[in-house]
Amino acid sequence: MQTIKSIWQKNWLGYLFLSPWLIGLLCLTAIPMAASLYLSFTNYDMFTAPQWVGFENYGDMFDDRKWLASVKVTAIFVFLGVPLQLSFALAIALLLNKGISGLKVYRAAYYVPSLFGGSVAIAILWRQLFGGDGLVNHALSLVGIEGMNWIATPDTALYTLVVLTVWQFGAPMVIFLAGLQQIPVDLYEAARIDGANKMKQFISITIPMLSPIIFFNLIMQIIASFQAFTQAYIVSGGTGGPLNSTLFYTLYLYQKGFTHFQMGYASAMAWILLFAIAIITALVFASAKKWVYYQE
């Protein structure tokens, strides 16, 4: 009995403070994950009892043209949007870094789109901007270019959303700026004495010293981009159109799970998403050995 008592005395306080989180972990994360995995092997539809269908949901996906479209759309969005956004973020951070006066004002101004970017309001604005008689076409007509309805054209709709992501480069930019400020000035001075020009300094000092931050931004933006939803929903009115060109993976998952109530299928989709994110994150982590430089 003594031991039980002493175990209790040692642990009760920690677990008391941990209890809300533990309950959440159990009831809102762990059990739902297990349930989701189970449901992904069933044909559950909310109204009738789930029936085991084995790997049918997973197999069906590869014959589902809309699913394939959503994978393609999401892949383009992630692999085009993230590098572009981070390049912009880095370029502007470099521009702002070199002891420029008014840094705080500029930084705040460039950050504003990141603050607003995820909102419904901005998605609505985007719909107007890139619409047939939107602001973008107005601007183009000033220089004699005839625009089109970018949102309603399947070939361009997705790219208006890529632009929206790139537009929100402020948050990674702020992180890059903080990272740049931690690079010791001596390194540049030593390089200057050795006769290295600006370009050489950038490649041999800035990039390696900044690589852990680039890595962090890359991982975080990839994970976030895979889960993008609001902008595609609002811009396409919830359809993912035109011709599925803005059918983000999460939007299709939402349609399957909560409009068609094919919850088994939607659960399987969620697990594929989890695996996709895990594999790509793991690849980036594996590549880190080659290009991320950690000082010790």
Partner: peptide, 11 residues
């Protein structure tokens, strides 16, 4: 790191 989509349906 967990995408909330894996829990949202059971939730």
């Amino acid at each position: 790191m967990l995408p909330f989509h894996v829990t949202v349906i059971p939730q």
